[in-house]
């Protein structure tokens, strides 16, 4: 049964990628730990969406809906990043000074 083989191969690939992700976390890669982890997760997600969720066999309408979900999220990530990436941490009026000490200590330039 071709379908059975496809499901089994996808499963084996997902488990292998999970182990690769686990192993990469124990290597000293600096920021590439995060990038690598997310890249492997993205490949796993694509495998699940393509083979298990059958985007491969889906019509244009369903592919469009799936793409809109992902695309809208990416736009919101970028727009949020414009704010969070450029502003300094500004305390809210309700926050007391001693509450802010650990945050300020962490955001001092090193």
């Amino acid at each position: 049964m071709a379908e059975l083989r496809r499901i089994a191969i996808t499963w084996a690939a997902l488990i292998a990628l999970m182990l690769a992700s686990l192993g990469s976390a124990y290597l000293k890669l600096g920021p590439w730990n995060l990038v690598g982890g997310l890249a492997i997760a993205a490949v796993k997600a694509a495998l699940v969406a393509w083979w298990y969720m059958r985007l491969r066999d889906a019509g244009p309408l369903i592919r469009l809906v799936a793409g809109v979900g992902l695309g809208t999220w990416l736009i919101l990530v970028v727009l949020s990043g414009v704010d969070y990436g450029t502003r300094a941490v500004t305390p809210a009026a309700v926050q007391r000074p001693q509450q802010l000490l650990p945050v300020q200590a962490a955001s001092q330039p090193r």
């Binding site: 992700s21 976390a25 730990n33 995060l34 982890g37 997310l38 492997i40 997760a41 997600a45 699940v48």
Partner: peptide, 16 residues
């Protein structure tokens, strides 16, 4: 799918 992303982000931050 959600868990696939949670796994590296929650469990695998600089394990070394």
């Amino acid at each position: 799918l959600v868990w696939i992303f949670l796994y590296p982000l929650l469990y695998l931050v600089e394990r070394h």
